[in-house]
Amino acid sequence: MTKSRSRRITAIIRYTVLTIWAIVAFFPIYWMISTSFKIDTQWFAWPPVYFPDPPTLSNYLNVWLGAQEYASTQYAISSQTPLVSLLNSTIIATTSTLLAVVFGAVIAYGVSRYKILSEARMFQLLMLRMIPPIVVVAPLSLYYSALGLLDTMFGLILIYFLTNLPYAVWMTKSFIDEVPREIEQAAEILGASRWRTIFEVVLPLIRSGLVATFLFILILTWSEYLLALILSKTNVATLPVELSKYQGTTEGKVYGRQAALAVGITVPLMIVGLIIRKHLARGFSFGMVRR
């Protein structure tokens, strides 16, 4: 077999696999978007309806604005408006993620430069995060009720901050490891204190990495369901909790409404991703950054 032919075959195989993967990965997303624009008769239609006809905004108006004229009795959902949940989710996710990244970076600095934690300790830290949340959620809810943290915004921020801190430490440490010692030492001998070196030299240098870490943890927090479900009741329901209320309620399966809500949950993350995409490419390939 000639070289160019074998290369063609490899290319064909590669693109076939990638195409299949892309279809598998994107179809649910397509289905979600498509369903959100369907009228109620097409939600369960068989054969399936691929393109909403006619497309309608009623699902969005009903779910997000609680527009009464669209709240046909059959599908009325008796819960708070999702805009409040959106606000809750935004505050909880961004605050806890920001805290995790900032504290994580500072701890990671200590680990990278002063070895405040050994390799084994670092690994144990990550192991902690690998415990399935369902295992600890029951005792946790007992603590929370005793401490009065149940169904409070602070309680959720705290638990997300704590559970994501290990990720933040691990990820930011790998970026800090890449910063040459000499650059820090140059700052030091030019008169910078340790903190000024961290905030003026190290953190700006790894900002792409920080942004990547931020997005990674934001996604985890934004879509976290179990802890939010158990540790909140009604005051601070987050979007995933809100979304679940559309499933298996007495009103039946309201797919169109649910899809409209799901799109609304996905879009903010996509916007964040788009805004910081320049950093993402660099952040996830930090090792290749020119020194």
């Binding site: 000499e182 650059i183 001998i189 030019l190 240098l205």
Partner: peptide, 14 residues
């Protein structure tokens, strides 16, 4: 009160 120049220059890239 010393000044140091490193082999790698160690300029602040940002």
């Amino acid at each position: 009160g010393l000044g140091m120049v490193f082999q790698s220059h160690a300029l602040f890239p940002h």
